[in-house]
Design a protein around this nucleic acid. Structure first.
Lengths: 183, 183
DNA sequence: TTCGTCATGTAAGACGTTACATGATTAG
DNA sequence: CTAATCATGTAACGTCTTACATGACGAA
């Protein structure tokens, strides 16, 4: 039984509050999920395994109006597992980005197609940047006066913001250079 | 049978020259592989499928001193497939980065562990940046006078360089802020 | 009445990683 | 003698994605 990043992401999300699989999936769509996405199927499966391994506890809550819930919480072993995972070195996981494959096709396919792909990407980056900056303004206006816990989360957000800004300015330059391509 | 990014990365690599599976795997370790890694096993499997689907041709070359080769080349259908893939919109594939999960643990585990992880990352980014800049200096000194084909490749490299620079400066800021964390 | 939210799951298939396996040649 | 390079693959396992499935409530 091998625990990979997803397990640790789940345990991390449980540091703050006890959550159902469903609520975890929601969390992954926003906060933590900006940097590690997971579908509800993955999460349910992983929770089952983590439970069998004693890394999380469950308490079942029966509801009459809605489906019953299974609320998960960290066990001491779960905490321990997180800490030792953090100690392990993170091996670099390479970038995988289709856009760059497309760029390698400049000169072999009509440039407009590639320009279109870059523009699409530009719009995505702009959207994400806007979202991140909204969150920053709302919750992280004064970084130095944040709680320790929030400082870590803020740093992730900051990385996201910088990445999007860099990507956006790259898009501008890319479109400029692609404009000089004939085909 | 579904063709995903890897197939298209392979076809793209075959635009320039006909290659063996082995040579493709080597290519993926450098150039294109900065943005899309693949192991030789994946490549061999994918080549088999692409061949069955008529997207690549093979010619077998018997060698006496070394093992025999199977040299793959693009077919017109392969080219067609590439072009229509480029036309399709690229759906955003989310970032997945363990480091950010680790950052979410600030406040719950000793900071030193996280500082260590950031420093490790810093070193990796520095290494990649150096490599990319070496390649830039050697092959892409004057971007505007490049061939169309090379302009696309250069833009990928440029994106890599900018990403690494951004990441490096983020590491500096992260280490500064983490220094203000008590636990 | 149709769509979205809450809440859980199964199953199939695609994709990725690690290990194993072969076998000759060349460089240290 | 050992390791690396050339060159191909299989097998086992792990992870991720997509589709399917159920069922009640509330809002438009």
């Amino acid at each position: 039984m091998l625990f990979m990043s997803l397990s640790h992401a789940i345990l991390t999300a449980l540091l703050d509050e006890d959550l159902t699989g469903y609520a975890l999936a929601k969390q992954f769509d926003v906060s933590l999920g900006f940097f590690w996405q997971a579908s509800h199927q993955q999460i349910y499966r992983e929770l089952k395994v983590l439970h069998q391994a004693g890394r999380v506890d469950v308490r079942e809550v029966l509801q009459h109006d809605k489906p019953d819930k299974r609320i998960y919480s960290l066990t001491p072993q779960g905490r321990q597992m997180l800490e030792s995972w953090i100690t392990e070195s993170t091996r670099p996981r390479g970038t995988k980005d289709e856009l760059f494959i497309k760029l390698y096709n400049v000169g072999s396919v009509p440039v407009e197609l590639i320009v279109k792909a870059v523009k699409q990407r530009q719009a995505e980056h702009a959207g994400k940047l806007e979202l991140y900056q909204k969150i920053e303004a709302r919750n992280y206006a004064r970084p130095s006066s944040l709680s320790d816990r929030k400082k870590g989360i803020y740093l992730s957000l900051l990385a996201g913001i910088r990445q999007e800004q860099t990507a956006l300015s790259w898009c501008d330059d890319a479109l400029d250079l692609l404009a000089t391509v004939k085909s």
